[in-house]
């Protein structure tokens, strides 16, 4: 059952990644559609990480006692000032593991 689930989920994930790379699938995108799609990565990734950062024990946590929030703010500052993914992730994670 676990194996079946893994393969079935893998099929869905692969289909979602491959579908529109297939030239036989008809798809002509307007300029507006392309612009809409250009926001997909920030929109989806933010929707995944924001609850991790802002919610502790199923409640909103926006105080200084939330290490996830503090380090996410640090990561954002580092990302803006350095534009370097390695510095952003390594420093913010190091600080997180120290204070957590």
């Amino acid at each position: 059952m676990i194996w079946l689930s893994i393969f079935a989920m893998a099929a869905i994930v692969f289909a979602s990644r491959y579908l529109f790379l297939e030239p036989k699938i008809p798809l002509r995108l307007s300029k507006t559609a392309l612009q809409f799609l250009s926001y997909s990565a920030p929109a989806v990734l933010t929707s995944i990480f924001a609850p991790i950062v802002f919610i502790r024990e199923e409640e909103l946590s926006i105080g200084l006692d939330n290490p996830y929030l503090l380090c996410a703010i640090l990561a954002t500052i580092l990302a803006v000032s350095t534009r370097n993914a390695l510095i952003t992730t390594v420093i913010s994670m190091a600080v997180f593991f120290v204070i957590n």
């Binding site: 933010t46 991790i52 950062v53 290490p67 996410a72 993914a85 952003t88 992730t89 913010s92």
Partner: peptide, 25 residues
Amino acid sequence: SWGLDFAIAATFIAIVVPNIKQPSG
């Protein structure tokens, strides 16, 4: 209890933030 899920947030912040180039982003 190590909070390894912070890595998800750090990775996605590192991807998202530098790519914000316009007010709409």
